[in-house]
Nucleic acid binder design. Structure first.
Length: 495
RNA sequence: GCGGCAGUAAUUCAGUGGUAGAAUGUCAGCUUCCCAAGCUGGACGUCGCGGGUUCAAGUCCCGUCUGCCGCUCCA
């Protein structure tokens, strides 16, 4: 498929999402908010179904417990996790050659002669501003010249001017740097209504830490023994540099995470187990197998906490993209929390009489990314009798509406019977009643939102109390007795 | 964050500086016995937002926001 055609598909899905109520742009009437999206009536239903299937798959088993931790956590959590340190480097870009530098790294790459020259030029350009010149002299009075330079460069006031005097180490051009920016990827807010820096807290950038700090609480309360896991679904927030590709990269997103605590010696076994299980989950819900793959992280690219890592990637129209990460996080996180909290997070193994900090195998799925993958994967355009139909072939467990009830015509008592069936089915299923327009049009409306079954009341219904059930993908119809409908649907939907 | 393209009805898109349009969808009614059929009627526009030029701006200029694409980033 050509690039243009690929973009068309995403455009069509975005358009359908808005038109039929899956996804709207956040704050649209105010011009939108970058990278934020709202889930409409069908979207919230689809998302809820995805989360529910994940929850059942991951926690309806003996060795995994659930948890719902607070989004706001003690700020020390993020010092222990490494997020405060790793998320806050000031960076500059070269506008000429597009290279990006951490400010402290850039400082190291400038030789001493050049540093002196740059500072001279800086003072010359600022000679009318006595306050800043004083500040420069004051910073420059330090013993270590390299350190002085780094301070000048990282200072908000002097840094901007000093950058203009420097050449890019990559392309050699002068004055091509953007202003230094703090790349703080964590959202900061304040506990209490007064914006005092002593009360800074962060919106969690991942749900995992809520699980780690509750490790012994859950273990004790649930009387679990190793190996066991803790699962959680919840929102997380990252101040991404740029958002992209519809729901794929957003600043507010939802994670479905499970942290599995194991004996260090068993880590490889469980890593392999969950790696296989998690891919199975996607295919079991109808996602196209050949559009899924693992992307194993090479050893030299691993995150600071990981011993082994893989991504499950889906082939989106714009390319392969990560929808889930599986990591062996070792005992890094629990060790750090022991260190920062001063509390023991060791586990005592009754059999071996050993006391140790468990290793953690993490499965971290993006709910919003899964949503997009399931949506894109389900989208088909087909030709039926020379006419085109667009259809979302969702797995029946994910479909936002399970069945539509359609009186063939609005007379002869059909609407009354249809309303009766609707009332009966609505107790157990998300159903939709539609008597507007020709039957073909109504079928297509349901195809477009992925409703797996359409129930039609016709003349024969008046005679023998049966209705037709039309299946979305094949468009085949079978006659089912009115009083067997509920049972019939239940069986089909649980297949 | 840099560069390119775009933004007009719910959607897709026309629109030459001079009265804002089409198709689809949607709603009401009629018709309709199975896959976007037909007829009649109706509703829906801060032309993304803010400035500027002009007698006059959807149209030209500047800024900004949002989206898409490429780079970059994604501990």
């Amino acid at each position: 498929m050509s690039k243009a055609a690929n973009n068309d598909v995403i455009e069509k899905i975005i358009s359908l999402s808005k038109r039929r109520g899956f996804v709207f742009q956040s704050s649209e009437i105010y011009g939108g908010l970058n990278g934020c999206w709202d889930y409409g009536p069908h979207g919230v239903e689809l998302l809820k179904n995805i989360k529910e299937e994940w929850w059942k798959f991951m926690t309806y088993r003996e060795d995994v417990e659930g948890l719902d931790a607070s989004i706001l956590m003690h700020p020390k959590v993020w010092e222990a996790s490494g997020h405060v340190e790793n998320f806050t480097d000031p960076m500059v870009d070269c506008k000429q050659c597009k290279s990006r530098f951490r400010l402290d790294v850039l400082s190291d790459q400038v030789n001493e002669k050049k540093k002196k020259k740059a500072v001279e030029a800086l003072k010359e350009s600022l000679k009318e501003n006595a306050v800043l010149v004083n500040k420069i002299d004051s910073i420059n009075s330090g013993a270590d010249e390299n350190e002085n330079f780094e301070k000048l460069l990282t200072d908000q006031e002097t840094g901007t001017y000093l950058l203009a005097e420097l050449n890019c180490p990559m392309c050699g051009n002068k004055g091509t740097f953007t202003a230094a920016r703090q790349f703080n990827l964590m959202f900061k807010t304040f506990i209490g209504p007064v914006e005092d820096s002593g009360a800074v807290v962060y919106l969690r950038p991942e749900t995992a830490q809520g699980i780690y700090v509750n490790f012994l609480n859950v273990q004790g309360a649930s009387r679990q023994k190793l190996p066991f896991g803790i699962a959680q679904i919840g929102k997380a927030f990252r101040n991404e540099i740029n958002t992209k590709n519809f729901l794929f990269r957003t600043r507010e997103f939802e994670q479905m995470e499970m942290q599995f605590f194991v004996k260090p010696a068993d880590d490889k076994k469980w890593y392999d187990y969950w790696k296989a299980e998690r891919l199975n989950w996607y295919t079991s819900l109808g996602m196209t197998g050949v559009k899924l793959r693992y992307h194993d992280h090479p050893k030299d690219k691993l995150a600071h906490y990981a011993k082994e890592a893989t991504d499950i990637e889906y082939q989106f129209p714009f390319g392969w993209g990560e929808i889930e990460g599986i990591h062996n996080r070792t005992n890094f996180d629990l060790n750090r929390h022991e260190e920062y909290s001063g509390k023991s997070l060791k586990y005592f193994d009754e059999e071996s009489k050993e006391k140790f900090v468990p290793f953690i195998i993490e499965t971290s799925a993006g709910a919003s990314r899964s949503f997009m993958a399931f949506l894109v994967d389900a989208y088909y355009e087909e030709e039926v009798n020379g006419e085109q139909r667009s259809v979302l072939k969702f797995h029946q467990k994910l479909a936002p509406v399970k069945a539509a009830i359609l009186p063939l015509v609005n007379k002869d008592g059909m609407p009354e019977i249809a309303r009766g069936i609707e009332k009966d089915l609505r107790r157990n299923f998300k159903v939709f009643y539609d008597d507007k327009g020709a039957i073909g049009r109504r079928y297509r409306r349901q195809d477009e939102i992925g409703t797996p079954y359409c129930i039609t009341i016709d003349t024969q219904t008046l005679e023998d109390k049966t209705v037709t059930v039309r299946e979305r993908d094949s468009m085949n119809q079978v006659r089912v007795s009115n009083d067997k409908l509920s049972e019939y649907l239940l069986k089909k939907l649980n297949d």
